[in-house]
């Protein structure tokens, strides 16, 4: 190695450090989103077939979503505290004519009934997802989460966490756009 290359080599540690610094500064300026987004957006709704939480004989099936009408698919549970806060927004969406299907995660029908009694029932149907199978199939990592499924049964978007009052307008627009 020539003396010149050696002299350049001596500055390498500084260069490496500055790179790390830039990376970290970038991470600090734009704090990244800890939420794990579903990769199913843009793909057909995975097949599932769940028993109804209302104690009747209807089933909630993936095929039922491809009927030309866009819907929201809401993952929730009676044991989930943020779901209580989300309930009024779901009711508002329902009043605006949006079809909402519910999937109750690891829940008991009796608890669910009490939850719906207290917080209102915006759901067309509610499926019981006892072992989070549908939740996993959709790449969802918690409750509440809401997916928009278009009329052809394609997953169009995912909303992680409770739907706040400020989200209702956007969501309504998204549902209309998926028409």
């Amino acid at each position: 190695m020539t003396l010149r290359t050696v002299r350049i080599l001596l500055w390498l540690p500084l260069a490496a450090f500055l790179l790390i610094l830039a990376l970290v500064a970038g991470g600090l300026i734009k704090p990244h989103d800890a939420a794990i987004r579903s990769q199913m957006v843009g793909r057909p709704l995975p097949a599932f077939d769940l028993a109804s939480a209302r104690g009747d004989a209807t089933r909630i099936r993936a095929q039922g979503f491809a009927d030309g009408k866009p819907r929201l698919l809401n993952f929730f549970a009676s044991w989930c505290i943020p779901c209580v806060g989300e309930a009024p927004q779901l009711l508002a969406l329902k009043r605006a004519g949006v079809a909402i299907e519910g999937i109750a995660v690891r829940d008991r029908p009796a608890d669910l009934a009490a939850f719906l009694q207290q917080n209102g029932d915006p759901y067309e149907r509610i499926g019981l997802d006892d072992s989070s199978g549908v939740q996993m199939a959709l790449g969802s990592s918690g409750v509440p989460e809401t997916f928009l499924i278009d009329g052809r049964g394609i997953v169009r978007s995912q909303h992680i966490g409770a739907i706040g009052p400020q989200d209702v307008g956007d969501m309504l627009a998204a549902v209309r756009a998926a028409q």
């Binding site: 050696v6 002299r7 001596l10 500055w11 540690p13 500084l14 450090f17 500055l18 610094l21 970290v24 500064a25 600090l28 300026i29 704090p31």
Partner: peptide, 30 residues
Amino acid sequence: ALDPRRGAFILILLALYIGGALALFGARIA
């Protein structure tokens, strides 16, 4: 998570100390 103010403070300190020492190294060690 540090709030941005703390984070920026720490980052500047690290840049000064580590960067300074490595620059001193590059300039002086030869």
